[in-house]
Amino acid sequence: MALLEIENLTVEFATAGGQFRAVDRLSLQADAGDVLAIVGESGSGKSVAMLAMMGLLPWTATVTADRLQFDGKDLLTMSAAGRRKIIGKDISMIFQEPMSSLNPCFTIGFQLGEAMKIHLGLSREARRSRAIELLDLVGIPAPEKRIGSFPHQLSGGMNQRVMIAIAIACNPKLLVADEPTTALDVTIQAQILELLLKLQQETDMALILITHDMGVVAETAQRVSVQYAGQKVEEQPVASLFDDPRHPYTAALLAALPERAHSRQLPSIPGVVPGQFDRPDGCLFAPRCTFATNRCRTEPPERAKGDTTSALCFYPLRNGVPQGHPGKEAAE
C-alpha cells in the first residue's frame, strides 16, 4: 500500500454556467522517497487535484473519488478536524507566490512556530530554537535576526525558503510543491529546487512537484504524470517519458521545448485547452491533435480497469509513430 493513493478523483465546481469539471477521474500514487512531477498547462487541474486532496478547496467544489487514502487513512470520509491533524503535519504544501502566501501582518518566526505549536505542542523556547534551526537548514543567513522580520522585508526567494521551512517544520511524510519556482528568477529557481531535493533525500519524504516547466521536471523528478484539461494523459518514469512519449500531447509538449526544436520557429500546439462550454465529446485533446480521427472526436478513450499510467489515447505513440492508426486518409 502506497503512502498516497488517489483513485478516480473528480473535482467539480459549481459556476454560474453549471458544473465545471476541473479534475476528471485522476489516479495517482506516491510512496516515501518518491519524486513525482505533475505537468500540464495552466488550467489542467494540477493544483486543484492537490488542493482537493488536502481539503483546501472552497465550498463551491464537489470532490468525489473511489479512493483517497493517505498513510492508510481515508481522507474523503474523515472529519474536518481529523483532516486538520494531518494537514500541515504529515502532508504540507508550498505555493506558487511566496510574497502573497505569507501573512504580511505577522513575523516569520510567528508563522513558522504556528504549526509546531498545534501539531507538536512545542513550548515557546523550543519553537524559537527549532525555527532558527529550520531557517538555517533552508539557507537563510542570520536566522536569529530574520525570525523577527516581516515577509515584506525579505526577497521573493528568501520568502520561498521561509515557506519551505514552514512546510517541513513538522517533518511531513508528503510535501506538495505547487509551482514553487514560477514566481522566482532563474538563478533562484535552481537554488530552490536543489534545496527541495536535498531535503527530500535527507528525510525520505515523498515529494509531489506541480509544474509546467519541463526543464524542472527533467532535473528533479523520478516519475512524471502529464495532465491535460483535468485528465491524466499518461504517466512514465522521467527518462522514458523524455525518450518515448506515448501520448500525442506529451509529444507535442516536448517538441515545443526550445532545446529540442529543429526549425527556426519554435513548434507550438495550436488551439487552447477546452473550457467549460467547448468540451469535446470524444478525446479532450482531439481538437488540437495532429493524429485525431473521427473515432477520437466522438468517443472518449478509456483505460482498462486497474491501469492508471498508460496513455489515454486510442493510438498511443511508439517512437513517435501512432500504433494502430488507420492512416492519414481515414483521419480526414
Partner: peptide, 8 residues
Amino acid sequence: RTAKAKGL
C-alpha cells in the same frame, strides 16, 4: 490558504 494548509 497557507494558514489553512498548516492545519489551523
